[in-house]
Design a protein around this nucleic acid. Structure first.
Length: 275
DNA sequence: GCCCAGGGAATCG
DNA sequence: CGATTCCATGGG
């Protein structure tokens, strides 16, 4: 990867067809980034605010030190993963080829385990604008303010949320999901659940463990594994993917392998645009 | 098994 | 335009 720094920015040479930042950050896998009027994207992750812009040939990480880029953003955006190889492994199927032509710039990012888990608990039976609003208010109420001038807040830690009740979550717009967040926080506080342990479990045990949290069913567990624990083989089946499976794969999905979750993302955006 | 629990967005009539 | 449907899970 070709990297250089200039004027407090970090520049990374990347072909936009191979990595599309706006698509990656606005595809429903994370809820704290938004596309700006000029096409750049701004958001918060791992306690840092970031603005990225992209041309056909490079990414610009604004006001970013090279050390922060290497330690935080390079792993966060999975720039160490060879997506050309992943896509090549999915190239055997015509529908997948069409989906990759359409959404092949998306990649699965490495979010905070806890933030992603909470986010996908909140996401159930819900829509993206409302999810974003709920999470934003959760951060405002319980997160740390990042700077004095802007209203930018971190996602709260499990420790910060320790001891909360559903009453503390009132007004955030979580609806009945408030009790699920309380249960998740309680299980972490009591050490019944250790999110670091999930990372090293085989996926069947990881699923089973996550599903002990109230409000975590098959769909939310799979989303948490794919988007929160970077388990690229996890395959969330929501209403859109059901349509894909019925329409294109009545005899079974042929790419149920180590990159099934990546394929899922391509197909999800393909079907939503195509129908 | 069935209905209900927020509420905003998408879709329908 | 207003009315209906959608969404994923657990509890009664």
């Amino acid at each position: 990867m070709e990297i250089y720094t200039n004027n407090n920015n970090v520049y990374v040479k990347v072909d936009k067809n191979s990595l599309n930042f706006a698509d990656t950050l606005d595809c429903g896998q994370c809820f704290r980034f938004a596309v700006n009027g000029d096409g750049s994207v701004t958001g918060v992750a791992f306690g840092k605010q970031l603005t990225v812009s992209q041309t056909d040939s490079e990414l610009v990480f604004h006001d970013t030190m090279e050390a922060d880029f290497r330690n935080t953003w390079l792993p966060f955006f999975a720039l160490d993963i060879d997506y050309d190889a992943i896509k090549k492994s999915l190239d055997f199927d015509e529908t997948l080829r069409l989906a990759m032509d359409f959404a092949g710039g998306i990649r699965i990012i490495r979010q905070s385990h806890f933030e992603a888990l909470c986010s996908f608990i909140i996401s159930q039976n819900n829509n993206i604008p409302r999810i974003k609003g709920s999470i934003s208010r959760l951060c405002e109420r319980f997160g740390d303010k990042l700077c004095d001038t802007d209203s930018v807040y971190t996602f709260p830690t499990p420790k910060r949320l320790n001891g909360i009740t559903t009453a503390d979550l009132a007004g955030l717009g979580l609806g009945y999901r408030d009790a699920y967040i309380v249960d998740c926080v309680e299980k972490i506080a009591s050490c019944e659940l250790d999110l670091e342990d999930i990372c090293t479990m085989d996926i069947a045990l990881a699923r089973e463990t996550l599903r002990k949290i109230k409000g975590v069913g098959p769909k939310v567990a799979e989303c948490a594994l794919l988007f929160g624990f970077h388990r690229l083989e996890a395959f969330p089946i929501d209403t859109w993917i059901k349509k894909v499976l019925e329409k294109f794969y009545p005899n079974g999905f042929p790419a149920m392998n180590e990159y099934a979750g990546v394929a899922q993302q391509y197909l999800f955006h393909y079907i939503r645009a195509a129908l």
